[in-house]
């Protein structure tokens, strides 16, 4: 009887925990929506920021652009290395000491605090190269942040390819490398795409690695100038670029809880959450779509 009573209480407790966690999430999202949605306007999305210390809200256009641009730059660097590394881990790594060491490296790298990666980036890409705060430095720092995850995504996607596919190609006298690139990678593509977009969501929200690499400021961008070598061009990779996440942090640490700061960061946080959630949903849908195309004509 006693044991049964305890059992019932335990079940009740587990339900309570589950509900608590779900309510926490709803609360967090609700808070962001309530404190953000009313500030969203076309101007907010398309105008440069005002000086919020003086009470001007302005917009977040450059920050939003920087976030996406930085994401694209990071992916351009990360994808080839990540796919190469993932292929090595899945197909070429032999069970020996080097592979063990490699796995330890991946593990260490994926658990590094992002502020440490930021410090390393500051040292190497800002001070040592003499670039100062640049998009390129930020992209390289984010690459370090993202690379271990990308390698793991690719490795898992390739390992999940049916062995029969690999054997079929090998038995036709196709080299291992061509088997990987022409047969296995296309089959692994849905997994890689899903993983890459989920990683993109993570990059999009990252700020600590960027504070000291891409910087806290953004020059006045001229959105009609698309020459990457020009100073005011949005595409110039060697200019400082505060992203949306960095901007939220900066607004809040510059001006403690003023009305304007609340509006700017509330609106920005709302946009940030929306983009990250969209990435998550998009990742699942695109992965499923590619898988369907692949298996049926």
């Amino acid at each position: 009887m006693n044991a049964k009573l305890i059992d019932r209480f335990a079940t009740l407790f587990f339900y309570a925990v589950a509900i608590l966690i779900i309510c926490t999430l709803i609360g967090l999202l609700g808070y962001i929506v309530i404190h953000g949605i009313s500030y969203i306007s076309w101007e907010f999305l398309t105008e440069p920021p005002g000086s919020y210390i003086l009470g001007q809200v302005g917009g977040i256009a450059p920050q939003l652009f920087n976030s996406f641009y930085l994401l694209i730059l990071t992916m351009i660097i990360t994808l080839p290395i990540g796919i190469g590394g993932g292929i090595y881990m899945a197909e070429y790594a032999k069970p020996n000491k080097f592979t063990k060491f490699l796995r330890l490296c991946m593990e260490v790298m994926s658990s590094l605090p992002s502020i440490i990666i930021g410090l390393f980036g500051l040292l190497l890409f800002v001070q040592y190269t003499g670039w100062g705060y640049t998009l390129a430095g930020g992209a390289l720092a984010l690459t370090i942040f993202n690379l271990p995850l990308m390698v793991r995504v690719v490795e898992q996607a390739i390992t999940a390819v049916p062995r029969e596919q690999k054997e079929a190609a090998l038995s036709l006298g196709v080299t291992h490398w061509q088997t990987i690139t022409k047969i296995m990678l296309p089959v692994a593509l849905p997994g890689i795409v899903t993983g890459a977009i989920l990683a993109a969501g993570r990059i999009f929200g990252e700020a600590a690695a960027l504070l000291f690499t891409a910087g806290l400021s953004s020059p006045n961008l001229d959105f009609t100038d698309w020459d990457p070598t020009s100073v005011s061009s949005p595409l110039n990779p060697f200019r400082p670029a505060a992203t949306l996440s960095v901007y939220i942090w900066k607004v809040n640490s510059d001006s403690l809880s003023t009305e304007t700061a609340a509006i700017v960061s509330g609106g920005s946080a709302f946009i940030l959450i929306c983009v990250v959630l969209l990435f998550t949903i998009f990742a699942r849908l695109l992965g499923r779509y590619i898988y369907r195309r692949l298996t049926s004509s």
């Binding site: 808070y31 962001i32 993570r202 929200g205 700020a207 942090w249 509330g266 959450i273 990250v276 959630l277």
Partner: peptide, 13 residues
């Protein structure tokens, strides 16, 4: 979704 929320947003809240 919780894991996807950026840390600045947690900080902001």
């Amino acid at each position: 979704i919780l894991v996807g929320i950026p840390s600045v947003v947690y900080g902001f809240i």
